[in-house]
Design a protein around this nucleic acid. Sequence first.
DNA 1: TTCACTTCTTAACCCAAGTCAAGGAGTTTG
DNA 2: CAAACTCCTTGACTTGGGTTAAGAAGTGAA
Lengths: 216, 216
Amino acid sequence: MKLDNIVKPSGKADLDFEVLEIMNSLVSSNENTQEEKDFFAENIAIKRVKKGVFLLKEGQFLKSSYHLYKGCIREFYLKDGEEKTVAFYTVGDSLSGDGNKLNQVPSDVSWECICECIISVFPFEVEKEMFQLFPRLESLCRMGIEKRYSNYKNAVNNYLSSSPGERYEHLIKTKPELFQLVPLYHIASYLGVKPESLSRIRGRLRSSPSAKPSIE
Amino acid sequence: MKLDNIVKPSGKADLDFEVLEIMNSLVSSNENTQEEKDFFAENIAIKRVKKGVFLLKEGQFLKSSYHLYKGCIREFYLKDGEEKTVAFYTVGDSLSGDGNKLNQVPSDVSWECICECIISVFPFEVEKEMFQLFPRLESLCRMGIEKRYSNYKNAVNNYLSSSPGERYEHLIKTKPELFQLVPLYHIASYLGVKPESLSRIRGRLRSSPSAKPSIE
DNA sequence: TTCACTTCTTAACCCAAGTCAAGGAGTTTG
DNA sequence: CAAACTCCTTGACTTGGGTTAAGAAGTGAA
């Protein structure tokens, strides 16, 4: 298991126990054979990255998949000089650039760590090698992608059939921790409105708390 | 090759030459081995279906993938009793219920043929069998899904960062044939507005033809 | 302390989409 | 033929987001 580029938590000893724990959980899974786990231990790096780091910048070629063990990452792209936030990734989420692995095209999104994160790094070449060594895993990955694709479709449909206000209420219920991590103007962008509008939405909800548009 | 449920073009002889031609193209591809082509011939059905037929209804469990050789299919779901159109599929498109193959859940979208269509039908069990017989094809399918996922993401980003008017202009440029096949209120729904609004958008574009909002 | 900077809020005004209602054009049906 | 129906358009009004501008609250620096 590679441990390069580790940013040590300030004032701690040499060993990063948080990262070590994640490594251990990786190689002690009982969904994988010993060969598979050895392969992971050999080829997957766990890294601690600082707030503000970009795992991917617009125009770059993505070379690895990432998995988030801790922290929060914002995905955005530029449109008319403005950053449009399209996703927030938190613990347990994968960032895997689905689709642009072979026919490599420059990315049109960026991935920015909005706080210190712990991630695993899984290069595409290693993935390719893994699929050759363990065809069973390619099958699992295919199903995993199909599942993510399906979830994403549902998320898009929900997004499109709700108002910015409803999206706000849904987000604050399902991911309240985001509001501690991310400035509101990023959340506004994610909800599809300008910061001023999010302010008004919050104002409206404040004055009629959780009361749906009612006939007085 | 199965040819069940064929709707014969009216007044024609027993053989449906259009369908036969598609079958021939399927088994004469030179991207596939002879074994693979035999498997296709054995397991893929080509069907001609009438306008108005539903390939999938909300609540049903999808059991097959489809590929469109001719015609047009509308995908929609119900939201507050209203049909929200989310996609139009035309020649060359695949309808493959990505994601809901194994952990089967009832569909929340419907697929309606808006005109007579010619499709291929590929049951999931057959797909599963195919993956076991020809692992090479599972690899290709995985990459295909990744590509579609990626395209879909781009489409969503474009959708979200454009106005209904821009979406209309883009659609009429890229898929003008749709406007011959589909009533405008379905297109309105697809563009994310009510029919009345689409009328006004068309009116605006009529009075200032292809002139972007200009300072006079 | 003051100044600069970031983030969020508020107000005034404009514009586009939603809503409701009416009507026209083209079908199909009796 | 008229009646019914579908699809599209138009008008008047409401609503909510965009824009611009101003300012409040918090932070950090000189």
